[in-house]
Structure formats: C-alpha cells, structure tokens
C-alpha cells in the first residue's frame, strides 16, 4: 500500500519534472503541401511558434496527395503523439484513419479545410477561417462596388476542394440577392498562377474581350495574378476595365493592388498558430467538448 503510494507519487513527480523540462506535448501536423504562397507561410508560422506553446511539432508535407497524408497520420498514430493536426487535401475519405486515431485515443484537430464524415466525434474541432464567409465578403464588396449590377467571370480552385466549394457558395449566396448580378463563366484554375492565366485567356476569347464583364472573382490570389497577366497581354486593363477581387491577400496581390491591377482581396491569415495552439493545449490539459468549428476571423482589404 505504502509502496504503491510512493511509486505513484514518484511517478507523477517524474512526469511533472520531465514536462517542465522538455516540450509539454508532441503534436503531429499533416500539411497539404507547399503550393502557392500562403501555405508555406502557414507551415512556417506553425513550426516557428510551436516552441512558444510548449509543443514539439512533427511536420509532414503530403505534397498534395491524400495517400501521402493518410500515411503520415498513420505514422503519427504509431509514434503515439499527444495530438494530430490535419490540414486535409480533400474533404472525403477520412473515416478509416480517423477511427484509427480514435481507437488509439489520440485527439484530432482539423485546420484549414474541412472533412466530410458522418460521425463528428471523430475529431475534436476544426480551427480555421470560414471559406464561406470569405466568398460572402468578396460578393458583398462586389455588390456594393457595382451597385448590384455585374456580370462576373469566376476562377474556381481545385475541383472538389473545400475552399473552392465554400468560396463559391458563399459568393453565390450574396450575389443571388441581386437580380442583375450573374456569373457568366466559371472554370477551374487549380489555385495556380498558370491555371488562372490559361482560364482567363479562354474567358477573354469566349466573352469577346470580356465585353460587358464587370468583375473577375478568383478563389485565390495566385489565379488572379495569372488572370492579370492574361488580361494585360490581351491589352485589357485589370482593375480598371474589370473589377478584380480574390482571396488570400498574399504579398504579390498587395503589390498588384498598389499598381492598380487588382481591387480587393480577402485576407486569409497565415499567422494562425496563435489561434490554433492554445485551443489544442487547453484541450490536452482538460479535455472537454468543444464547438465543432472555431472560426479564425477574416478581413477584406481594398486597393487605395
């Protein structure tokens, strides 16, 4: 009996001291990849800030492939990390691996994109910006700027990805309130500069030099930057002939806004570690049910 107590006391003492010395928690983070400008900045912020919150971050880059991501998450489970953060490549196909994490009693937190699972208890919460809200903000700005009268061409993100679906539906939810606002052409530019440029080149031809088009809405800035190049090469004046609104607020679009080539961009914060780590560490200290979605606020920036 006394031995037991002693053992327990020394064990807890050892645990506490080791916790005070080394990182408090080992957390695995499976990131989508390093496409565009936003995501590398997001990854760097998560890695730089981990120490501040007593987190030993194990970082895995999935190179845009879900198979890779499933492998990384299974590796984290095998290593017995304290928690797993997933930025999902796509919304579907997550049931099995999340079940495995649940069986291993490792809490899973989603960041950035959402997953589509019936059993919401498979993850603790999702901490992310609201893609739908971003689409709504872009739509609201455009409605105000065009006084509710605007024909729009849209460059979608990767088909089937959560930001593409949500930004589109948020944007449409707002412009549907205005009978004279309409998306006349929409295509996927795969979130890349090259994709945006190709799609805008095709739009320019199919709409007879963007005749009667009042705005271009891109699901991210990279595609919008490609669209700006395509428009300039066709002798059009982006930002003046056509209102240019996109999402992300990367440094290059800030430059384009200063040059008058773009009009507005909804900021997707890359410095989000300060919103993510406290939620996770609080949960690991005292597990409790959280809302299934903790929203990181977004802002719309306008060109001066």
């Amino acid at each position: 009996m006394t031995f037991h107590k002693l053992f327990a006391a020394s064990l807890s003492c050892a645990l506490m001291s080791s916790a005070a010395l080394a990182a408090d928690y080992t957390i695995g983070f499976s990131q989508v990849g390093s496409e565009g400008d936003w995501r590398p900045a997001f990854s760097k912020n998560m890695q730089d800030e981990a120490g501040k919150y007593g987190v030993d971050l194990k970082f895995a880059n999935a190179q845009g492939k879900q198979e890779e991501q499933l492998r990384a998450v299974r590796a984290f489970i095998a290593q017995g990390v304290d928690a797993i953060i997933i930025a999902p490549v796509v919304v579907t196909g997550w049931e099995d691996v999340l079940e495995e994490a649940k069986d291993a009693e490792i809490p899973v937190f989603l960041v950035d994109r959402d997953v589509d699972v019936d059993d919401k208890s498979l993850y603790v919460t999702r901490i992310s910006a609201d893609f739908n809200l971003e689409g709504k903000l872009a739509g609201a700005w455009l409605a105000a700027e065009s006084l509710g009268n605007c024909k729009i061409v849209e460059m979608q993100g990767t088909t089937g990805s959560a930001p593409a679906i949500e930004r589109k539906s948020g944007f449409e939810a707002v412009i549907d309130q205005f009978p004279a606002m309409e998306i006349v052409a929409t295509q996927s530019g795969d979130f890349t500069t090259e994709g945006g440029k190709k799609v805008m080149e095709a739009f320019i031809k199919s709409t007879n030099n963007l005749d009667g088009i009042c705005a271009a809405f891109a699901h991210n800035d990279n595609m919008q930057l490609g669209a700006i190049q395509a428009m300039k090469e066709a002798g059009l004046k982006p930002g003046k002939d056509v209102l240019m609104v996109s999402v992300d607020y990367v440094p290059a679009i800030v430059d384009a806004m200063k040059a008058g080539d773009a009009n507005a961009s909804v900021e997707l914060r890359s410095a989000v570690a300060e919103f993510i780590y406290p939620v996770i560490t609080d949960y690991l200290e005292s597990p409790k049910d959280l809302d299934k979605w903790i929203v990181i606020p977004s802002d719309l920036h306008k060109a001066e």
Binding site: G33, G64, E194
Partner: peptide, 14 residues
C-alpha cells in the same frame, strides 16, 4: 517556356 510565362518558379504545380 512555362516558367517564363508566369515569371514565377512554382515547382509544385508547373
């Protein structure tokens, strides 16, 4: 040709 087109190096998706 592709890199000079967008004048950006994008090894992930080019």
């Amino acid at each position: 040709i592709l890199t000079a087109d967008t004048h950006t190096s994008d090894p992930v998706s080019v």
